[in-house]
């Protein structure tokens, strides 16, 4: 785990929801943070290197760009977990994939351009893995606002 000082924490809290849309966003941010742009860029590089920042970019709204996504839970036998996770990961349309402690132990999200393609991927995965799975598409969305409060 990386060591963060107060400035790092302020940076991490700022770049999630309040990254300035500007031709020179880091310069603008550096004014807000009270440090030089040079120092900010050095800190950004370090935060990236150490895994605290994955990327700064667009968070795409799949549904709005015409796509469709779902959450799938799958029951993999303990001895085959790695192999099955790898089979799932090989699909480019899989964006998140986690091992969880439960009967349904592998949980992943799939996004595709349309419903037919999504069903195709789920059918393929059922065949490839031979494991029981349930398809859990969103029926209603109450909140999606990932912001990690860095303390």
């Amino acid at each position: 785990m990386i060591q963060l000082d107060d400035i790092d924490k302020n940076i991490l809290n700022l770049i999630q929801l309040d990254f300035p849309l500007d031709v020179h966003p880091f310069e603008k941010m550096s004014f807000q943070l009270g440090i030089s742009e040079e120092e900010l860029l050095e800190r950004m590089d370090r935060l990236k290197e150490e895994g605290a920042v994955r990327r700064i970019g667009p968070v795409i709204n799949t549904k709005r760009v015409g796509g469709i996504s779902t959450l799938v839970a799958l029951k993999a036998p303990g001895s085959k977990i790695d192999e099955i996770a790898e089979l799932i990961n090989q699909h480019q349309e899989v964006s998140h994939n986690y091992l969880r402690q439960a009967d349904y132990n592998i949980w992943f999200t799939v996004s595709a351009a349309n419903k037919e393609r999504l069903e195709q991927i789920i059918n393929d995965l059922q065949e490839e893995t031979g494991c029981p799975l349930i398809d859990l598409p969103t029926k209603r969305l109450f909140k999606i606002g990932v912001k990690f409060d860095v303390k």
Binding site: G51, A52, V53, V59, I60, N61, R64, V150
Partner: peptide, 22 residues
């Protein structure tokens, strides 16, 4: 980018955090 956000194609333009790393 501002328009893409305003029209809902992107939810935001910003950082993805490696929450485990921190």
């Amino acid at each position: 980018i501002e328009q893409l956000q305003k029209n809902g194609f992107i939810r935001r333009f910003g950082a993805s955090i490696g929450h485990r790393a921190i």
